[in-house]
Structure formats: C-alpha cells, structure tokens
C-alpha cells in the first residue's frame, strides 16, 4: 500500500521530526520504495508460527528490591543526571512551559 505526502507528514509528526514540504516529497518516494520492497514478506506462509520473542533461549531475570545496590543503576547522582542537560535549573530539567 503506497503512502502519500499527507501520510509522510503524519508519520513525521508522530515521530516528532519537523519536515519541509520538499523533504516530505522526497521521503514519499524513498519510503514507498522501501515499503514496497519489504511487503514481499506477505508472501510467506506463517500459519501457526509464533512471532519471535527471545532470539536466544533465555529467561527474564528479576533483581532484588534493594536501593542503590549498584551505583550505576541507583539514584543519588543528581549531578550526573543533570550534567548534560541543555537547561538544568535549580535541580530540575527546564523545558518550554507546558499547558496541561
């Protein structure tokens, strides 16, 4: 199923990527090329086949309920968390004002 420029703009909006009309036009062709090609998967008979969930047989491990057991995945590191923030303000991340 071919997509049009309106769909391209809708996808871009869902993905939060600003695009110009020219980009939308260019992408329309590219995306249709790729999507047309991947659609050959529809030929494959997948009756009774489960979608892949774990590529290598493995169990989901659960961790113990311990705070900061490993500093790499624990809290109490606000400076590290904020170190790269474009707008760190009074211990918060600043963003343009949001109206809820």
């Amino acid at each position: 199923m071919a997509i049009d420029q309106a769909t391209v703009r809708k996808i871009a909006s869902l993905a939060r990527i600003a695009i110009s009309d020219a980009e939308a036009a260019a992408m329309e062709g590219e995306l249709n090329g790729i999507l047309g090609w991947v659609e050959q998967l529809g030929e494959v008979d997948v009756t009774g086949v489960e979608p892949m969930t774990a590529v290598i047989p493995n169990q989901l491990r659960l961790r113990d309920d311990v705070i900061d057991a490993d500093p790499l995945t624990g809290g109490n590191r606000r400076d590290d968390v904020l170190a790269n923030a474009p707008a760190a303000m009074h211990g918060f991340f600043g963003v343009p004002k949001v109206i809820e």
């Binding site: 991947v38 529809g42 494959v44 997948v46 086949v49 489960e50 979608p51 892949m52 590529v55």
Partner: peptide, 11 residues
C-alpha cells in the same frame, strides 16, 4: 508489518 516480520524471523 511488525508481527509478520517477527514470524518470518522465527522461520
């Protein structure tokens, strides 16, 4: 698309 691709991946 996605579910079909993951099924093909199983195959």
């Amino acid at each position: 698309y996605y579910t079909q691709a993951q099924k093909v991946r199983t195959l």
